[in-house]
Design a protein around this nucleic acid. Structure first.
Lengths: 217, 217
DNA sequence: CCAAAAGTGTTGAAACTACACCCATGG
DNA sequence: CCATGGGTGTAGTTTCAACACTTTTGG
């Protein structure tokens, strides 16, 4: 019988806060890398890999029904000083607001995804992979919907794309595009939120994420 | 300490034969699923996951320096009757010709990727995932280069795309496209192979696979 | 000389880009 | 009344899709 390894899941959890993409990190309370920042995660029990990821995510954030997708599996010998650990990374998207990003024991905080602190293990590489995946899929899926609240203005949607892709779009062209693709549907009512002219609210037509025949960008 | 699982790699190995996409399958010589067809693969030793995949691939096909890419990780409890096995699937592309798809002991054969025989474990799902990945990446990377010999005619390249995507392209438009993208460079000399007018041979400009700014299709 | 694949241009339609001003509201 | 973000149309350019005939070679 071949040697036994341990299998873990690690989570790259993204949200938008203060107009920037942020990732959830945990301060480790136990060795190895005690006191350092790391991705949330843990060992897989008698459950599917995705269930393990959901369980860890709920333990850390209290959130359920979150968009979750398998990212990549990291398994180099030596990536964990405790021994051979193969880690299946998932990435999760959290809508703004109702986040209590603090768990019972360990400290949990949001950090700018672009420049995180020094991370334990190979977690910097995992985070990096999550970022690449997010950026890539933004263009040809409706993934972005999972980073906004259910109802949003077109300006918010445009800012999302501009923030993540570090690119600027023309307002009229952007609106024409998403509208003509039929991805999004106006909602009766307005947002009073601004101290300015109220904006029409929209929702994504499709509940689950879909891959587009022709890309948004 | 958490429960120990075992980690395996499984390989979806594609090639083009007889003008069709084929996948390499192995007849299992031992239980479980003895006598049934399965993807090549095996348990991970003290090596990286990719190294494990390469090792298994060389054992089965004798091939080295093959294009290999991690595909997805399958880990449902119960997917392997022997106990909990998490399998990291890789997919590999083999150029035509120099394949001895037969290993020492077990029987190995190519099957049409679109309609394989009944497969052991959850290997049908893994194969399916490989197919989807291949088709998707064909459009926006130079992945296809790994399924052709180093030098090829534009007609061969077009057939490759048509076969995999089950779609027909206009010859002039196709050629204009790949040529104007500068992906491909003519080679001095012709192919005498046909009983017809000789065709110009081309090679891909870039050795390794690259992601394209704007897609081929 | 014939079968078979190689090679090559044009045109109309559609999509894309760049660009500037008026509107509605809260303070 | 003014500052702030919301909302809208057009024209020039580029890209895309559809389409058919001549060329070269081996047998």
């Amino acid at each position: 019988m071949p040697n036994a390894l341990r299998v873990a899941v690690d989570l790259v959890v993204f949200t938008i806060r203060d107009g920037a993409l942020q990732a959830l990190l945990i301060r480790r309370g136990v060795p190895p890398f005690e006191g350092e920042w790391a991705l949330p995660g843990g060992f897989v029990l008698d459950e599917t890999l995705e269930a393990a990821a959901r369980r860890e995510l709920e333990e850390e954030t209290g959130l359920q029904h979150v968009y979750l997708e398998q990212l990549y599996t990291f398994g180099d010998p030596g990536r964990d000083p405790r021994g051979r650990v193969v880690s299946v990374a998932y990435f999760a998207l959290i809508r703004p607001e109702p986040v209590r990003a603090s768990t019972d024991a360990a400290e949990a905080r949001w950090f700018p995804a672009a420049k995180p602190p020094r991370l334990a293990f190979d977690h910097a590489a995992i985070l990096e992979a999550g970022l690449r995946r997010l950026r890539a899929k933004l263009g040809y899926t409706t993934l972005g919907s999972q980073l906004l609240s259910e109802e949003f203005t077109l300006t918010q949607l445009q800012s999302l794309y501009q923030t993540l892709l570090e690119r600027r779009f023309d307002k009229r062209n952007f609106r024409r595009r998403v509208l003509s693709l039929g991805l999004v549907r106006p909602v009766r009512g307005k947002t009073a939120r601004g101290a300015h002219r109220p904006a029409q609210l929209y929702t994504f037509r499709s509940g689950p994420i879909q891959v587009l025949d022709d890309p948004i960008l």
